[in-house]
């Protein structure tokens, strides 16, 4: 290609810079930064490796930790997963005090329900609220919004006891819906979505209104398609929050039948149980089981997550 040809002046320039050591310094910088990054990478990944290989370690090998970190002398085994998933203890397994059933299938379904269902429902509620605040002019909407934002100051932990007694009073303490409903009043996501909606040109909405569309149609046909990035980001945040939530499900169902638990409550129970050392492997296996769906989602949606995080709140 003609424009890729290097002129003699440019060539001399390169040589001069080379002579001045510019190129060398750049290389050194690259190597140093690579080493630092690699070190941090290893530190960051290490716990995951320990967890993964630890879950493949039989109860006989637990005491050889951390001497045989990645390869136990009696070989890899799936017995921890068997304990976790099917309650099949190896014949020589020592005494343990597991009183509650490891209903990991139920836990998984419960968590999926609360995380996915809760997220979708929250997106609907929050985007409708955001639409109302941005595109519908009603009295005192500024005041109302200010009150909502002010309520963000109160930490969740402070209101959780009140929430719990409310849920009990409503008779929801037996229902899994209790995991979802209190979260629907969250302001943060609504605020995020509202900020994004504000960047949608008002002309679009006015034009659609003039054409005879009503608010619901405008919401569905214009605002939602344009706001899908922010909805995705908020959906992701909501899903992660729902998946990783421990305190609230624990408060609700911690003392009830283990079939009502979520993965995190179950995990907490397993970890609590594994103080006998023989069950440490099963705790680590539980960690892997919890992690895999989230990790899979991250890998699949990686591009979109990065796009969404960069794009959220930036005006087009």
């Amino acid at each position: 290609m003609a424009q890729n040809k290097v002129t003699s002046e440019q060539f001399i320039g390169f040589k001069k810079r080379e002579a001045a050591g510019v190129k060398k310094r750049a290389e050194v910088g690259k190597i140093v930064s690579f080493i630092i990054l690699a070190a941090f990478c290893i530190i960051w990944v290490m716990p995951f490796f320990i967890m993964f290989f630890g879950s493949l370690r039989g109860h006989i090998d637990t005491t050889f930790y951390p001497k045989e970190l990645f390869y136990p002398h009696s070989g890899y085994t799936l017995e921890n997963y068997k304990i976790l998933l099917f309650q099949e203890y190896p014949p020589d397994f020592p005494q343990h005090n597991t009183t509650q059933e490891y209903a990991i299938g139920h836990w998984f379904m419960n968590t999926c329900f609360s995380a996915i269902g809760g997220t979708l429902l929250y997106l609907l509620v929050a985007s409708l609220a955001a639409y109302t605040f941005v595109f519908i002019d009603f009295k005192f909407h500024n005041v109302l919004f200010a009150i909502l934002v002010a309520s963000m100051v109160v930490p969740g932990a402070a209101t959780s006891v009140g929430n719990q007694s409310l849920v009990y009073a409503m008779g929801l303490n037996k229902s899994i819906l209790a995991l979802i409903i209190p979260g629907l009043g969250g302001i943060y996501g609504m605020y995020l979505i509202k900020t994004f909606f504000e960047s949608i040109p008002k002309d679009l909405i006015e034009s659609a209104r003039m054409d005879g569309y009503n608010n619901w149609e405008i919401y569905l046909k214009i605002v939602l398609p344009l706001g899908k990035t922010v909805l995705f980001v908020q959906g992701l945040f909501g899903f992660m929050g729902g998946w990783n939530d421990l305190v609230w499900p624990q408060m609700l169902f911690g003392t009830q039948d283990s079939k009502k638990w979520t993965l995190q409550v179950g995990m907490a129970y397993i970890i609590n149980n594994s103080k006998t050392a023989n069950l440490i492997g099963s705790a680590l296996a539980g960690g892997v089981v919890c992690l895999v769906p989230v990790l899979a989602m991250y890998i699949v949606a990686q591009d979109k997550i990065i796009d969404g995080m960069a794009g959220a709140g930036i005006k087009r």
Binding site: D203, M210, D211, L226
Partner: peptide, 19 residues
């Protein structure tokens, strides 16, 4: 309501739906 006035409007920003 503006939809009942039998008008159509061209905006300065064109107001085209990007999607």
């Amino acid at each position: 309501a503006s939809k009942d006035r039998d008008i159509s409007m061209v905006f300065q920003s064109y107001a085209l739906y990007p999607q």
